[in-house]
Every structure is written in structure tokens, then in C-alpha cells.
Amino acid sequence: MIAGRNICSWLLKGKHGIGALLCCVFLFNSCVIDSDKKILFFAHSLPTTHPVHKGIVAMKESVEKKSNGKLVVKIFPDGQLGTEREVLELLQIGSIAMTKVSAASMSNFAPAYQVTSIPYLFRDREHLFKVLEGEVGKELLESSSAYLLRGLCFYDAGARSFYAKKKPVKTPQDLDGMKIRTMNDEMSVNMVNTLGGSATPMAYGELYTALQQNVVDGAENNIPSFVTSNHYEVCKYYTFDEHTMVPDVVVIGTKFWNTLSTQEQQWLQDAANESVIKQKQYWQETVAENMEVLKKANVEFLYPDKTKFSAKASGVMEKMMQDEKMKTVIEKILAQ
């Protein structure tokens, strides 16, 4: 059903040593399933304490209940099977079934997703989900099917803001000369460089050490990720500039999707849609809890004049609107 051998080959090519060998044994055994069951391996890079992981668990429980155990989801968190890009590639070749990635990562495979990373495009959380759960969101999810990746739903990933180790970021000018870790996508890099920082793309799992060793001076992310990654132990300045609201995307490889019956596809889609409601709730609860954690850790919160940031970042949107297709989508979003 799912080619465990493909994962093993990829891991061993990466020279991950005995860990890879043990993982191969585990995955190969996991693929020995009953004829009346289909197992969906779901890999992602977040820890189990993260609200997005909790949303995935809610989806798992829902689809297993709806299918009466005919569809079983096995979750591999914490980047066990690779980075977001590596896992998306595994989906494309059919080695695993599903993942959760940032829409920014999806844009490396399906360019239409770039629109979600445009700074200050979304007015607030309500506007974001009005767009994502409407016509534009549906078109985005469907756009990646051409690249063997089918979007099922969007999860709340909050607003991304800057955090720094050595000095607070109060204005865009404070970013001058600062090496800021970004996701490995063109839009994120352009956004940081436009605001005056020096964008430094790197894998999320490498960031804690990079901050400790001064390889980078700061990063940008949402509050739950700032806490679950323990980056607040190193960075004591968090600036609520909220430059982007990049959602997460639940994705299934089309190679696996096409092995499902129409009924099984409906069970999975319905479970994904239902999990969105719970995930949003988990997100809000987690943010409130995390703010208390950060206060106790003496993290300094800064609430800058966002208009200074949005004005300096406006060139990113203007450049994107030079593409007629992208311009049409942006205008649809702004009109909502």
C-alpha cells in the first residue's frame, strides 16, 4: 500500500547510519497490514506539544472513527522522516501518505501558494480564514494537485513576528545588518531582505543551535513555535510586528489519494475539515498558555508601529502584482 522500501532507500542514501536502519525496519513492519485496512503515514516537523500536532491527532481520531478502523493514521512528528521539503518529496513518490507543512514550503512546489506569504496582505485572523475557507482557499488547495500534492485543509499558524537575541526590533531600521533565519522559500527571503535584514534560510531543526552559536541573530515565527522550539531560552526580545499570517496546509500525496475509494476519500476530507475547527481552538488556547510561559521567562514583548513595517514591505506585494494571475488573486483577497 505504502512503499516502506522507498523511505528506507531515501534514508540510507542520506547516510543516516544505524538510526536509518532501525527506522527502515520499523517502517517496513508497519506496512504489513490487514487486507481490510489502509495505513496512512503522516509525517511532520513539529513536537507533540504543538497545537498543530493536536489538530492532526483530532483528524486521525475522526477518520479512524468514520471509517470504522479501515483507515488508520500513524503520525511521525519531530521531523523523524525529514524536513518539510524532504517529506513533500516522499509524498510525491508515494513513500508516505500525508504531511503538514507551511504554505511557504508548498510554494516551492506549487507557486500559487506564494500569495499566502505576502507581508501585510491579510488584515487580521478573521480576514485570513474568510479567504482560506472560501473560493481562493479552495483554488489554492487544488492548485498543488498538478504537482502530485493534494491540499486537504488549512490550519491556523498564527501571525509570524521577529524575535532576536542581542537587541530588540522596534522599527525596520533595527533589522539592518541582522542575520534573520527564514524558511527556504523565495517570498520569505525577499520579505526579510526588503525590510532591511539579511535573510538566512535554514532548516527549522537547525535554528536553536544557530542562535546559540550566533550563526544568526534572530528569526521570525509565531508564538507557539517560539515556545515549543525553546528559542525563547536564547532570544529574549519578541516583536509583534505580525508581518505575515502564513497558514499550515494538510497535504496528501496524489499517488496515495488515488488508491482510496470515493468513500474513503470523503471520510478523510470530512475528518480534515472537522479537525480545522478543533485546531483553531487548540491554537488560541496554546497562545494564551505560551504567553504566560514567556512572561515567566522574562521575554520582553514589543508592540511597534506596524505601519512602518508594512510601508517598507509594500514593494513585495507590488512586485508580485506584476504577474497578472497573481494580481487577480491578490485583488480578490483585498476585496474581501
Score class of each variant (00 low, 15 high):
Gly158Ser: 10
Ser161Met: 04
Ala110Trp: 10
Pro119Phe: 08
Asn108Glu: 11
Gln80Pro: 04
Asp78Gly: 06
Val73Tyr: 08
Leu81Thr: 00
Val136Ile: 14
Ala112Ile: 04
Pro111Ser: 03
Gly177Trp: 04
Arg150Glu: 07
Gln80Glu: 11
Phe109Met: 09
Ile96Ser: 02
Thr99Ala: 11
Ser67Glu: 09
Leu175Asn: 00
Lys70Gln: 10
Lys60Tyr: 11
Thr194Glu: 10
Leu88Phe: 08
Leu140His: 09
Thr83Phe: 00
Val73His: 03
Phe76Asp: 02
Arg160Val: 12
Leu91Glu: 00
Arg181Ile: 01
Leu121Asn: 15
Thr194Cys: 07
Leu149Asn: 02
Ser161Thr: 06
Gly69Arg: 10
Ser143Trp: 09
Ser62Tyr: 02
Tyr120Met: 05
Thr99Arg: 06
Ser198Pro: 00
Ala159His: 10
Leu141Pro: 07
Asp156Trp: 04
Pro172Phe: 06
Ser198Ile: 06
Val73Ala: 04
Ala104Gln: 13
Phe129Tyr: 14
Gly79Asp: 02
Thr116His: 04
Pro168Val: 15
Glu133Thr: 11
Ser161Leu: 10
Gly82Lys: 02
Ser107Cys: 03
Leu90Lys: 01
Asp174Thr: 05
Phe76Arg: 06
Arg150Met: 01
Lys130His: 08
Gln80Thr: 13
Met183Ser: 12
Tyr120Asp: 03
Phe76Cys: 09
Ala97Asp: 08
Lys166Tyr: 10
Arg150Trp: 04
Gln80Tyr: 13
Glu139Asp: 13
Leu90Glu: 00
His127Ser: 07
Ile93Ser: 12
Ala103Pro: 03
Glu126Val: 13
Tyr163Phe: 15
Lys170Leu: 14
Tyr120His: 04
Phe162Thr: 04
Asn193Glu: 11
Glu86Gln: 03
Arg85Phe: 11
Lys166Met: 08
Val189Lys: 15
Ala110Met: 13
Leu148Asp: 09
Ser143Tyr: 11
Lys179Ile: 05
Ala112Gln: 08
Met191His: 12
Val87Arg: 00
Val189Leu: 12
Asp174Met: 05
Val192Pro: 01
Arg85Val: 08
Lys100His: 15
Ala146Ile: 08
Thr194Lys: 11
Met178Leu: 14
Val189Ser: 12
Leu141Cys: 05
Ser161Val: 07
Ser102Phe: 07
Phe109Tyr: 13
Gly94Tyr: 00
Val115Leu: 01
Glu133Leu: 11
Ile96Met: 03
Ile118Asn: 02
Gly79Lys: 03
Glu133Lys: 14
Val192Tyr: 00
Ala97Trp: 07
Ala97His: 09
Ser62Pro: 00
Lys130Phe: 02
Glu126Lys: 14
Asn68Gln: 12
Glu89Gly: 07
Arg125Pro: 11
Glu142Lys: 13
Tyr113Arg: 03
Lys74Leu: 13
Arg181Gln: 15
Arg125Ile: 15
Ile75Val: 14
Pro111Phe: 00
Val136Leu: 09
Pro172His: 05
Ile75Ser: 05
Asp174Ala: 07
Ala157Val: 01
Asp156Arg: 07
Asp78Ile: 06
Asn68Ile: 06
Ile180Val: 14
Gly158Leu: 12
Arg181Met: 13
Glu61Tyr: 12
